[in-house]
Design a protein around this nucleic acid. Sequence first.
DNA 1: TGGCATGAGGGGTTTACGTCA
DNA 2: ACTGACGTAAACCCCTCATGC
Length: 322
Amino acid sequence: MESGGMVFDSFKLTSLSLKNEKLPSSSDVLDSLWIAGSSPSFHVPGSTSIVNFEDIRGENSTDGPFFDKEENGSEDCDGCFRQPEKKRRLSPDQVQFLEKSFEVENKLEPERKIQLAKEIGLQPRQVAIWYQNRRARYKTKQLEKDYNSLKETYDKLKADHDSLFKENEELRNEVHSLKEKLQEREKGKPKSEPCDTTSPLEAGSEPNKPLPSSVSPNASNIPMVIYKQDDATSAKSDVFDSDSPHYADGIHSSFIEPSDSSHIFGSDFSQDEEDNLSRNLMPPPSFVKLEDDESYGDLQMNSCNLGFPVEDQTTWLWPLIE
DNA sequence: TGGCATGAGGGGTTTACGTCA
DNA sequence: ACTGACGTAAACCCCTCATGC
Protein backbone atom coordinates (compact mmCIF):
# COMPACT_ATOMS: atom_id res chain seq x y z
CA MET A 1 0.00 0.00 0.00
CA GLU A 2 0.93 3.60 -0.41
CA SER A 3 2.16 5.19 2.71
CA GLY A 4 2.45 8.93 2.76
CA GLY A 5 6.19 8.64 2.51
CA MET A 6 6.03 6.40 -0.47
CA VAL A 7 3.74 8.77 -2.22
CA PHE A 8 5.96 11.70 -1.57
CA ASP A 9 9.06 9.85 -2.67
CA SER A 10 7.39 8.71 -5.83
CA PHE A 11 6.21 12.17 -6.51
CA LYS A 12 9.67 13.64 -6.23
CA LEU A 13 11.07 10.92 -8.38
CA THR A 14 8.45 11.52 -11.01
CA SER A 15 8.98 15.21 -10.96
CA LEU A 16 12.60 14.69 -11.71
CA SER A 17 12.46 11.94 -14.24
CA LEU A 18 9.11 11.36 -15.81
CA LYS A 19 8.74 14.54 -17.73
CA ASN A 20 11.02 13.31 -20.45
CA GLU A 21 10.05 9.73 -20.14
CA LYS A 22 8.22 8.20 -23.04
CA LEU A 23 5.03 6.76 -21.74
CA PRO A 24 4.06 3.47 -23.23
CA SER A 25 1.38 2.75 -25.79
CA SER A 26 -1.67 4.95 -25.63
CA SER A 27 0.02 7.41 -23.42
CA ASP A 28 1.20 9.29 -26.45
CA VAL A 29 -2.03 11.16 -26.54
CA LEU A 30 -1.75 11.84 -22.90
CA ASP A 31 1.62 13.45 -23.42
CA SER A 32 -0.16 16.36 -24.90
CA LEU A 33 -2.23 16.55 -21.79
CA TRP A 34 0.83 16.58 -19.64
CA ILE A 35 2.33 19.34 -21.68
CA ALA A 36 -0.86 21.31 -21.74
CA GLY A 37 -1.23 20.85 -18.05
CA SER A 38 2.25 21.99 -17.34
CA SER A 39 1.30 25.50 -18.26
CA PRO A 40 -1.59 25.75 -15.95
CA SER A 41 -4.76 27.33 -17.09
CA PHE A 42 -6.88 25.68 -14.45
CA HIS A 43 -8.61 27.59 -11.80
CA VAL A 44 -9.65 26.02 -8.58
CA PRO A 45 -12.82 27.75 -7.52
CA GLY A 46 -13.05 28.25 -3.83
CA SER A 47 -11.58 25.74 -1.53
CA THR A 48 -12.46 22.57 -3.25
CA SER A 49 -9.75 20.03 -3.09
CA ILE A 50 -9.84 17.39 -0.46
CA VAL A 51 -6.10 17.16 -0.39
CA ASN A 52 -4.00 18.42 2.37
CA PHE A 53 -1.52 19.70 -0.12
CA GLU A 54 1.23 20.17 2.37
CA ASP A 55 1.46 16.44 2.65
CA ILE A 56 2.69 15.93 -0.83
CA ARG A 57 4.13 19.18 -1.90
CA GLY A 58 6.26 20.27 0.95
CA GLU A 59 7.54 23.80 1.09
CA ASN A 60 7.62 24.48 -2.63
CA SER A 61 4.10 23.50 -3.03
CA THR A 62 2.52 26.53 -4.52
CA ASP A 63 3.50 26.15 -8.15
CA GLY A 64 1.29 23.30 -9.24
CA PRO A 65 -1.39 23.89 -11.81
CA PHE A 66 -4.25 23.34 -9.43
CA PHE A 67 -2.98 25.31 -6.52
CA ASP A 68 -4.28 28.72 -5.87
CA LYS A 69 -2.08 30.82 -3.73
CA GLU A 70 -5.02 32.83 -2.55
CA GLU A 71 -6.67 29.70 -1.44
CA ASN A 72 -3.73 28.49 0.55
CA GLY A 73 -3.16 31.83 2.09
CA SER A 74 -6.70 32.46 3.19
CA GLU A 75 -7.64 32.51 6.82
CA ASP A 76 -10.49 30.17 6.07
CA CYS A 77 -8.06 27.43 5.38
CA ASP A 78 -6.11 27.82 8.54
CA GLY A 79 -8.59 25.61 10.20
CA CYS A 80 -8.71 23.23 7.32
CA PHE A 81 -5.48 21.58 8.24
CA ARG A 82 -6.27 21.28 11.89
CA GLN A 83 -9.59 19.65 11.62
CA PRO A 84 -9.87 16.12 10.37
CA GLU A 85 -10.03 16.06 6.57
CA LYS A 86 -13.44 16.82 5.21
CA LYS A 87 -14.46 15.13 2.06
CA ARG A 88 -14.50 17.61 -0.72
CA ARG A 89 -15.34 17.34 -4.34
CA LEU A 90 -12.73 17.66 -7.00
CA SER A 91 -12.82 20.85 -8.94
CA PRO A 92 -14.46 20.83 -12.37
CA ASP A 93 -11.10 21.35 -13.95
CA GLN A 94 -9.62 18.44 -12.11
CA VAL A 95 -12.54 16.26 -13.10
CA GLN A 96 -12.30 17.40 -16.69
CA PHE A 97 -8.64 16.57 -16.78
CA LEU A 98 -9.27 13.15 -15.31
CA GLU A 99 -12.13 12.56 -17.72
CA LYS A 100 -9.94 13.33 -20.69
CA SER A 101 -7.34 10.98 -19.40
CA PHE A 102 -9.95 8.32 -18.76
CA GLU A 103 -11.21 8.58 -22.31
CA VAL A 104 -7.76 7.78 -23.58
CA GLU A 105 -7.17 4.88 -21.25
CA ASN A 106 -9.40 3.69 -18.47
CA LYS A 107 -6.64 1.79 -16.79
CA LEU A 108 -4.09 3.59 -14.76
CA GLU A 109 -0.41 2.87 -15.16
CA PRO A 110 1.60 3.73 -12.07
CA GLU A 111 3.58 6.33 -13.97
CA ARG A 112 0.43 7.88 -15.31
CA LYS A 113 -1.11 7.92 -11.91
CA ILE A 114 1.75 9.82 -10.44
CA GLN A 115 1.97 12.16 -13.38
CA LEU A 116 -1.74 12.84 -13.26
CA ALA A 117 -1.64 13.43 -9.55
CA LYS A 118 1.12 15.90 -10.02
CA GLU A 119 -0.58 17.74 -12.82
CA ILE A 120 -3.83 18.26 -11.04
CA GLY A 121 -2.55 18.50 -7.51
CA LEU A 122 -4.05 15.40 -6.03
CA GLN A 123 -2.58 12.47 -4.23
CA PRO A 124 -1.91 9.46 -6.43
CA ARG A 125 -4.20 7.57 -4.13
CA GLN A 126 -7.00 9.95 -4.99
CA VAL A 127 -6.37 9.54 -8.67
CA ALA A 128 -6.50 5.77 -8.27
CA ILE A 129 -9.74 5.98 -6.35
CA TRP A 130 -11.22 8.31 -8.91
CA TYR A 131 -10.34 5.83 -11.65
CA GLN A 132 -11.81 2.97 -9.69
CA ASN A 133 -15.05 4.79 -9.10
CA ARG A 134 -15.14 5.98 -12.68
CA ARG A 135 -14.68 2.47 -14.01
CA ALA A 136 -17.33 1.08 -11.71
CA ARG A 137 -19.86 3.73 -12.59
CA TYR A 138 -19.05 3.53 -16.27
CA LYS A 139 -19.64 -0.18 -16.09
CA THR A 140 -22.98 0.35 -14.40
CA LYS A 141 -24.07 2.78 -17.08
CA GLN A 142 -22.85 0.45 -19.78
CA LEU A 143 -24.83 -2.40 -18.27
CA GLU A 144 -27.94 -0.25 -18.24
CA LYS A 145 -27.35 0.64 -21.87
CA ASP A 146 -26.81 -2.97 -22.84
CA TYR A 147 -29.91 -4.00 -20.97
CA ASN A 148 -32.04 -1.44 -22.72
CA SER A 149 -30.61 -2.37 -26.07
CA LEU A 150 -31.22 -6.06 -25.51
CA LYS A 151 -34.70 -5.39 -24.26
CA GLU A 152 -35.49 -3.35 -27.33
CA THR A 153 -34.20 -6.11 -29.56
CA TYR A 154 -36.20 -8.67 -27.65
CA ASP A 155 -39.37 -6.67 -27.93
CA LYS A 156 -38.94 -6.29 -31.67
CA LEU A 157 -38.23 -9.96 -32.11
CA LYS A 158 -41.22 -10.86 -30.01
CA ALA A 159 -43.45 -8.62 -32.07
CA ASP A 160 -42.12 -10.28 -35.20
CA HIS A 161 -42.69 -13.68 -33.72
CA ASP A 162 -46.21 -12.85 -32.73
CA SER A 163 -47.07 -11.51 -36.13
CA LEU A 164 -45.58 -14.55 -37.83
CA PHE A 165 -47.48 -16.78 -35.49
CA LYS A 166 -50.69 -15.02 -36.31
CA GLU A 167 -49.99 -15.23 -39.98
CA ASN A 168 -49.20 -18.89 -39.66
CA GLU A 169 -52.52 -19.49 -38.02
CA GLU A 170 -54.31 -17.71 -40.81
CA LEU A 171 -52.51 -19.74 -43.42
CA ARG A 172 -53.34 -22.94 -41.61
CA ASN A 173 -56.98 -22.01 -41.61
CA GLU A 174 -56.82 -21.14 -45.25
CA VAL A 175 -55.21 -24.45 -46.11
CA HIS A 176 -57.79 -26.23 -44.04
CA SER A 177 -60.71 -24.57 -45.78
CA LEU A 178 -59.20 -25.19 -49.20
CA LYS A 179 -58.68 -28.80 -48.29
CA GLU A 180 -62.29 -29.13 -47.30
CA LYS A 181 -63.46 -27.52 -50.52
CA LEU A 182 -61.27 -29.91 -52.45
CA GLN A 183 -62.67 -32.91 -50.69
CA GLU A 184 -66.21 -31.71 -51.26
CA ARG A 185 -65.53 -31.30 -54.94
CA GLU A 186 -63.95 -34.74 -55.18
CA LYS A 187 -66.94 -36.28 -53.51
CA GLY A 188 -69.34 -34.59 -55.87
CA LYS A 189 -67.51 -35.65 -59.04
CA PRO A 190 -67.53 -39.04 -60.74
CA LYS A 191 -64.32 -41.12 -60.57
CA SER A 192 -63.76 -40.67 -64.29
CA GLU A 193 -61.79 -37.49 -63.67
CA PRO A 194 -58.91 -38.70 -61.57
CA CYS A 195 -56.38 -36.04 -62.33
CA ASP A 196 -58.38 -32.93 -61.73
CA THR A 197 -57.19 -32.21 -58.25
CA THR A 198 -55.72 -28.86 -58.95
CA SER A 199 -56.27 -26.28 -56.32
CA PRO A 200 -58.64 -23.56 -57.36
CA LEU A 201 -55.95 -21.08 -56.60
CA GLU A 202 -53.69 -22.63 -59.13
CA ALA A 203 -56.19 -22.66 -61.94
CA GLY A 204 -54.71 -21.14 -65.03
CA SER A 205 -51.11 -21.31 -63.88
CA GLU A 206 -48.54 -23.51 -65.50
CA PRO A 207 -48.36 -26.84 -63.81
CA ASN A 208 -44.63 -26.97 -63.15
CA LYS A 209 -44.13 -23.44 -62.06
CA PRO A 210 -44.75 -22.25 -58.55
CA LEU A 211 -46.87 -19.24 -58.16
CA PRO A 212 -44.97 -16.01 -58.12
CA SER A 213 -45.10 -14.42 -54.75
CA SER A 214 -47.11 -11.55 -56.11
CA VAL A 215 -49.88 -13.98 -56.95
CA SER A 216 -50.00 -15.29 -53.44
CA PRO A 217 -53.32 -14.58 -51.84
CA ASN A 218 -51.46 -13.53 -48.79
CA ALA A 219 -49.86 -10.13 -48.69
CA SER A 220 -46.73 -11.52 -47.10
CA ASN A 221 -43.79 -12.91 -48.94
CA ILE A 222 -44.29 -16.41 -47.66
CA PRO A 223 -44.56 -18.54 -50.75
CA MET A 224 -47.62 -20.68 -51.14
CA VAL A 225 -46.56 -24.18 -51.98
CA ILE A 226 -49.33 -25.48 -54.12
CA TYR A 227 -48.92 -28.26 -56.63
CA LYS A 228 -50.79 -31.00 -58.31
CA GLN A 229 -50.95 -34.20 -56.41
CA ASP A 230 -49.96 -36.18 -59.48
CA ASP A 231 -46.93 -34.01 -60.00
CA ALA A 232 -45.52 -33.91 -56.55
CA THR A 233 -41.97 -34.52 -57.60
CA SER A 234 -41.76 -31.59 -59.91
CA ALA A 235 -43.57 -29.45 -57.42
CA LYS A 236 -41.09 -30.34 -54.77
CA SER A 237 -38.19 -29.47 -56.92
CA ASP A 238 -39.81 -26.22 -57.82
CA VAL A 239 -40.10 -25.37 -54.22
CA PHE A 240 -36.83 -26.61 -52.92
CA ASP A 241 -34.26 -26.97 -55.59
CA SER A 242 -33.17 -23.41 -56.09
CA ASP A 243 -30.97 -23.07 -53.04
CA SER A 244 -31.34 -26.38 -51.37
CA PRO A 245 -29.58 -29.25 -53.06
CA HIS A 246 -30.63 -31.51 -50.24
CA TYR A 247 -34.15 -31.52 -51.46
CA ALA A 248 -33.61 -31.38 -55.16
CA ASP A 249 -32.21 -34.86 -55.25
CA GLY A 250 -35.36 -36.49 -54.02
CA ILE A 251 -33.75 -37.99 -50.96
CA HIS A 252 -36.40 -36.47 -48.82
CA SER A 253 -39.17 -37.37 -51.14
CA SER A 254 -41.17 -38.73 -48.25
CA PHE A 255 -40.92 -35.35 -46.67
CA ILE A 256 -44.08 -34.08 -48.26
CA GLU A 257 -47.08 -36.29 -48.44
CA PRO A 258 -49.22 -35.07 -51.27
CA SER A 259 -52.31 -36.49 -49.70
CA ASP A 260 -51.96 -34.43 -46.59
CA SER A 261 -51.12 -30.84 -47.10
CA SER A 262 -50.73 -30.24 -43.41
CA HIS A 263 -47.28 -31.75 -43.76
CA ILE A 264 -46.24 -28.75 -45.66
CA PHE A 265 -46.31 -26.79 -42.48
CA GLY A 266 -44.20 -29.21 -40.61
CA SER A 267 -46.59 -30.00 -37.86
CA ASP A 268 -46.32 -33.72 -38.45
CA PHE A 269 -42.60 -33.93 -38.87
CA SER A 270 -40.78 -36.56 -36.99
CA GLN A 271 -38.00 -35.30 -34.76
CA ASP A 272 -35.38 -36.55 -37.20
CA GLU A 273 -36.97 -34.75 -40.06
CA GLU A 274 -37.15 -31.60 -38.07
CA ASP A 275 -33.53 -31.92 -37.13
CA ASN A 276 -32.57 -32.41 -40.72
CA LEU A 277 -34.57 -29.42 -41.67
CA SER A 278 -33.02 -27.33 -39.03
CA ARG A 279 -29.57 -28.37 -40.12
CA ASN A 280 -30.06 -28.17 -43.83
CA LEU A 281 -32.32 -25.24 -44.15
CA MET A 282 -31.00 -22.95 -41.52
CA PRO A 283 -29.55 -19.76 -42.90
CA PRO A 284 -25.96 -18.89 -42.11
CA PRO A 285 -25.57 -18.17 -38.41
CA SER A 286 -24.72 -14.54 -38.89
CA PHE A 287 -27.82 -13.79 -40.85
CA VAL A 288 -29.13 -11.03 -38.70
CA LYS A 289 -26.93 -8.59 -36.97
CA LEU A 290 -29.21 -7.59 -34.20
CA GLU A 291 -27.15 -4.82 -32.76
CA ASP A 292 -27.19 -3.02 -36.04
CA ASP A 293 -30.12 -0.75 -35.76
CA GLU A 294 -30.01 0.13 -39.40
CA SER A 295 -30.22 -3.38 -40.65
CA TYR A 296 -32.85 -4.10 -38.12
CA GLY A 297 -34.77 -1.15 -39.34
CA ASP A 298 -34.79 -2.72 -42.75
CA LEU A 299 -36.33 -5.79 -41.28
CA GLN A 300 -39.21 -3.75 -40.10
CA MET A 301 -40.10 -3.05 -43.67
CA ASN A 302 -41.66 -6.45 -43.72
CA SER A 303 -41.94 -8.29 -40.52
CA CYS A 304 -42.47 -11.53 -42.38
CA ASN A 305 -39.35 -11.74 -44.46
CA LEU A 306 -36.91 -11.48 -41.57
CA GLY A 307 -34.48 -9.63 -43.73
CA PHE A 308 -34.08 -12.31 -46.39
CA PRO A 309 -34.75 -12.08 -50.06
CA VAL A 310 -37.94 -13.82 -50.97
CA GLU A 311 -36.16 -16.52 -52.90
CA ASP A 312 -34.20 -17.50 -49.83
CA GLN A 313 -37.19 -17.86 -47.63
CA THR A 314 -38.45 -20.83 -49.54
CA THR A 315 -35.63 -22.83 -48.14
CA TRP A 316 -35.55 -21.92 -44.53
CA LEU A 317 -38.87 -20.57 -43.50
CA TRP A 318 -40.48 -23.90 -42.97
CA PRO A 319 -38.78 -24.95 -39.80
CA LEU A 320 -39.89 -21.72 -38.22
CA ILE A 321 -43.52 -22.47 -38.76
CA GLU A 322 -45.14 -24.34 -35.97
C1' DT B 1 -35.18 17.39 3.89
C1' DG B 2 -34.79 13.75 0.54
C1' DG B 3 -32.41 12.32 -3.54
C1' DC B 4 -28.52 12.04 -6.33
C1' DA B 5 -23.57 12.23 -7.42
C1' DT B 6 -19.25 11.24 -5.89
C1' DG B 7 -15.08 10.58 -2.86
C1' DA B 8 -13.36 7.18 -0.02
C1' DG B 9 -12.84 2.84 3.11
C1' DG B 10 -12.64 -2.04 3.56
C1' DG B 11 -12.73 -6.82 2.26
C1' DG B 12 -11.84 -10.25 -1.17
C1' DT B 13 -9.49 -11.61 -5.48
C1' DT B 14 -5.95 -11.49 -8.99
C1' DT B 15 -1.37 -10.92 -10.61
C1' DA B 16 3.48 -10.31 -10.66
C1' DC B 17 7.57 -11.18 -8.41
C1' DG B 18 10.99 -12.96 -5.21
C1' DT B 19 12.50 -16.81 -2.25
C1' DC B 20 13.37 -21.41 -1.06
C1' DA B 21 13.53 -26.37 -0.94
C1' DA C 1 19.89 -25.09 -13.73
C1' DC C 2 15.10 -25.95 -13.51
C1' DT C 3 10.67 -26.23 -11.15
C1' DG C 4 6.80 -25.97 -8.12
C1' DA C 5 5.11 -24.21 -3.67
C1' DC C 6 4.73 -20.31 -0.90
C1' DG C 7 4.67 -15.49 0.76
C1' DT C 8 4.09 -10.63 -0.25
C1' DA C 9 2.84 -6.31 -2.29
C1' DA C 10 0.18 -3.83 -5.44
C1' DA C 11 -3.78 -3.26 -8.19
C1' DC C 12 -8.27 -4.21 -8.95
C1' DC C 13 -13.30 -5.07 -8.16
C1' DC C 14 -17.28 -4.79 -5.45
C1' DC C 15 -20.01 -3.16 -1.80
C1' DT C 16 -20.87 0.28 1.21
C1' DC C 17 -20.97 4.60 3.61
C1' DA C 18 -20.37 9.61 4.18
C1' DT C 19 -20.66 13.95 2.42
C1' DG C 20 -21.70 17.83 -0.72
C1' DC C 21 -24.95 19.89 -3.66
